[in-house]
Protein backbone atom coordinates (compact mmCIF):
# COMPACT_ATOMS: atom_id res chain seq x y z
CA UNK A 1 0.00 0.00 0.00
CA UNK A 2 1.42 3.40 -0.93
CA UNK A 3 1.83 6.19 1.54
CA UNK A 4 -0.88 8.09 -0.30
CA UNK A 5 -3.51 5.38 -0.04
CA UNK A 6 -2.61 4.85 3.63
CA UNK A 7 -3.20 8.52 4.30
CA UNK A 8 -6.44 8.48 2.35
CA UNK A 9 -7.63 5.43 4.26
CA UNK A 10 -6.73 7.07 7.58
CA UNK A 11 -8.48 10.29 6.62
CA UNK A 12 -11.55 8.41 5.46
CA UNK A 13 -11.54 6.48 8.73
CA UNK A 14 -11.41 9.70 10.69
CA UNK A 15 -14.23 11.16 8.64
CA UNK A 16 -16.41 8.11 9.31
CA UNK A 17 -15.60 8.25 13.04
CA UNK A 18 -16.43 11.95 13.03
CA UNK A 19 -19.74 11.21 11.36
CA UNK A 20 -20.48 8.50 13.91
CA UNK A 21 -19.54 10.82 16.79
CA UNK A 22 -21.84 13.50 15.47
CA UNK A 23 -24.70 11.03 15.10
CA UNK A 24 -24.11 9.65 18.61
CA UNK A 25 -24.08 13.17 20.02
CA UNK A 26 -27.36 13.93 18.33
CA UNK A 27 -28.93 10.73 19.62
CA UNK A 28 -27.71 11.32 23.18
CA UNK A 29 -29.08 14.86 23.07
CA UNK A 30 -32.45 13.61 21.83
CA UNK A 31 -32.56 11.02 24.64
CA UNK A 32 -31.75 13.75 27.20
CA UNK A 33 -34.47 15.97 25.75
CA UNK A 34 -37.19 13.31 26.04
CA UNK A 35 -35.99 12.38 29.53
CA UNK A 36 -36.38 16.07 30.43
CA UNK A 37 -39.94 15.88 29.10
CA UNK A 38 -40.54 12.89 31.42
CA UNK A 39 -39.13 14.96 34.31
CA UNK A 40 -41.69 17.66 33.52
CA UNK A 41 -44.47 15.07 33.72
CA UNK A 42 -43.10 13.73 36.99
CA UNK A 43 -42.66 17.12 38.67
CA UNK A 44 -46.10 18.44 37.76
CA UNK A 45 -47.82 15.15 38.56
CA UNK A 46 -46.01 15.23 41.89
CA UNK A 47 -47.67 18.57 42.71
CA UNK A 48 -51.11 17.19 41.81
CA UNK A 49 -50.46 13.83 43.43
CA UNK A 50 -49.38 15.35 46.75
CA UNK A 51 -52.78 17.09 46.90
CA UNK A 52 -54.63 13.95 45.79
CA UNK A 53 -52.91 11.92 48.52
CA UNK A 54 -53.61 14.62 51.13
CA UNK A 55 -49.91 15.22 51.82
CA UNK A 56 -50.33 18.90 50.84
CA UNK A 57 -53.38 21.18 51.21
CA UNK A 58 -55.33 21.77 48.02
CA UNK A 59 -54.65 25.06 46.28
CA UNK A 60 -56.59 25.84 43.11
CA UNK A 61 -54.00 28.14 41.51
CA UNK A 62 -51.10 25.72 42.09
CA UNK A 63 -53.13 22.75 40.90
CA UNK A 64 -54.18 24.58 37.73
CA UNK A 65 -50.61 25.64 36.99
CA UNK A 66 -49.40 22.05 37.37
CA UNK A 67 -52.21 20.71 35.18
CA UNK A 68 -51.49 23.37 32.52
CA UNK A 69 -47.83 22.35 32.52
CA UNK A 70 -48.71 18.68 32.30
CA UNK A 71 -50.87 19.26 29.23
CA UNK A 72 -48.26 21.55 27.65
CA UNK A 73 -45.59 18.87 28.12
CA UNK A 74 -47.91 16.19 26.71
CA UNK A 75 -48.60 18.24 23.57
CA UNK A 76 -44.96 18.90 22.64
CA UNK A 77 -44.14 17.52 19.22
CA UNK A 78 -42.20 14.50 20.42
CA UNK A 79 -41.36 13.03 17.01
CA UNK A 80 -37.94 14.71 16.71
CA UNK A 81 -36.91 13.49 20.18
CA UNK A 82 -37.24 9.81 19.16
CA UNK A 83 -34.77 9.40 16.24
CA UNK A 84 -34.05 5.99 14.73
CA UNK A 85 -31.19 4.34 16.59
CA UNK A 86 -32.08 5.77 20.01
CA UNK A 87 -33.51 2.48 21.35
CA UNK A 88 -32.12 0.36 24.19
CA UNK A 89 -30.23 -1.90 21.79
CA UNK A 90 -28.34 0.95 20.13
CA UNK A 91 -28.09 3.72 22.73
CA UNK A 92 -28.23 4.52 26.45
CA UNK A 93 -31.98 4.39 26.70
CA UNK A 94 -34.64 2.08 28.12
CA UNK A 95 -36.88 2.54 25.06
CA UNK A 96 -37.60 -0.81 23.39
CA UNK A 97 -36.88 -1.05 19.65
CA UNK A 98 -40.52 -2.21 19.24
CA UNK A 99 -41.54 1.45 19.51
CA UNK A 100 -40.20 2.16 16.07
CA UNK A 101 -41.98 -0.79 14.48
CA UNK A 102 -45.32 -0.06 16.22
CA UNK A 103 -45.53 3.64 15.55
CA UNK A 104 -49.36 3.90 15.23
CA UNK A 105 -49.74 2.22 18.63
CA UNK A 106 -47.16 4.54 20.21
CA UNK A 107 -49.04 7.50 18.75
CA UNK A 108 -52.38 6.21 20.11
CA UNK A 109 -50.83 5.81 23.54
CA UNK A 110 -49.47 9.36 23.33
CA UNK A 111 -52.93 10.64 22.41
CA UNK A 112 -54.37 8.82 25.43
CA UNK A 113 -52.02 10.86 27.62
CA UNK A 114 -53.11 14.11 25.92
CA UNK A 115 -56.75 13.20 26.59
CA UNK A 116 -56.08 12.35 30.23
CA UNK A 117 -54.07 15.56 30.70
CA UNK A 118 -56.86 17.59 29.07
CA UNK A 119 -59.36 16.11 31.53
CA UNK A 120 -56.96 16.89 34.37
CA UNK A 121 -56.65 20.50 33.23
CA UNK A 122 -60.44 20.85 33.21
CA UNK A 123 -60.73 19.31 36.69
CA UNK A 124 -57.72 20.64 38.59
CA UNK A 125 -59.10 24.10 39.44
CA UNK A 126 -62.38 22.72 40.80
CA UNK A 127 -61.24 20.96 43.96
CA UNK A 128 -59.19 18.03 45.16
CA UNK A 129 -61.91 15.51 44.24
CA UNK A 130 -61.48 16.55 40.61
CA UNK A 131 -57.76 15.76 40.79
CA UNK A 132 -58.45 12.40 42.43
CA UNK A 133 -60.90 11.58 39.66
CA UNK A 134 -58.55 12.55 36.83
CA UNK A 135 -55.18 11.27 38.06
CA UNK A 136 -56.01 7.58 37.57
CA UNK A 137 -56.38 8.02 33.82
CA UNK A 138 -53.09 9.92 33.64
CA UNK A 139 -51.35 7.10 35.52
CA UNK A 140 -53.01 4.57 33.22
CA UNK A 141 -51.72 6.42 30.14
CA UNK A 142 -48.15 6.59 31.55
CA UNK A 143 -48.28 2.92 32.50
CA UNK A 144 -49.70 1.75 29.16
CA UNK A 145 -46.65 3.03 27.30
CA UNK A 146 -44.15 1.98 29.98
CA UNK A 147 -45.70 -1.48 30.10
CA UNK A 148 -45.25 -2.06 26.40
CA UNK A 149 -42.14 -0.12 25.54
CA UNK A 150 -39.83 0.44 28.51
CA UNK A 151 -37.06 -1.96 29.51
CA UNK A 152 -36.55 -2.68 33.23
CA UNK A 153 -34.06 -0.40 34.99
CA UNK A 154 -30.64 -1.78 35.79
Amino acid sequence: MTRFTKLTAAALGLTLLGGAAFADGHIDAAIKARQAQMQLYGFNLGVLGAMAKGDVDYDAATASAAADNLLAAATLNASIMWPQGSDSGAAKSRAKADMWSNYPDVQAKGMALVEAATAMQAAAGGGVEGIRGAIGAVGGACGACHKAYREPSS
Binding site: G42, G139, G140, C142, H146, P152
Partner: peptide
Protein backbone atom coordinates in the same frame (compact mmCIF):
# COMPACT_ATOMS: atom_id res chain seq x y z
CA UNK B 1 -50.30 1.56 48.84
CA UNK B 2 -50.54 4.58 46.51
CA UNK B 3 -48.21 2.89 44.01
CA UNK B 4 -50.39 -0.22 44.00
CA UNK B 5 -53.46 1.93 43.39
CA UNK B 6 -52.10 4.42 40.85
CA UNK B 7 -48.84 3.03 39.47
CA UNK B 8 -47.01 6.19 40.61
CA UNK B 9 -43.73 5.89 42.50
CA UNK B 10 -43.03 8.49 45.25
CA UNK B 11 -41.26 10.68 42.66
CA UNK B 12 -44.10 10.19 40.15
CA UNK B 13 -42.39 7.95 37.72
CA UNK B 14 -44.87 5.24 36.70
CA UNK B 15 -44.72 1.47 36.80
CA UNK B 16 -43.64 -0.22 33.59
CA UNK B 17 -42.97 -3.61 32.10
CA UNK B 18 -44.58 -6.57 33.79
CA UNK B 19 -45.16 -4.59 37.01
CA UNK B 20 -47.64 -2.39 35.12
CA UNK B 21 -49.80 -5.54 34.74
CA UNK B 22 -49.47 -6.16 38.47
CA UNK B 23 -50.58 -2.61 39.28
CA UNK B 24 -53.63 -3.03 37.02
Amino acid sequence: AYYFESGFTPDFDSSGGHMAHVVE
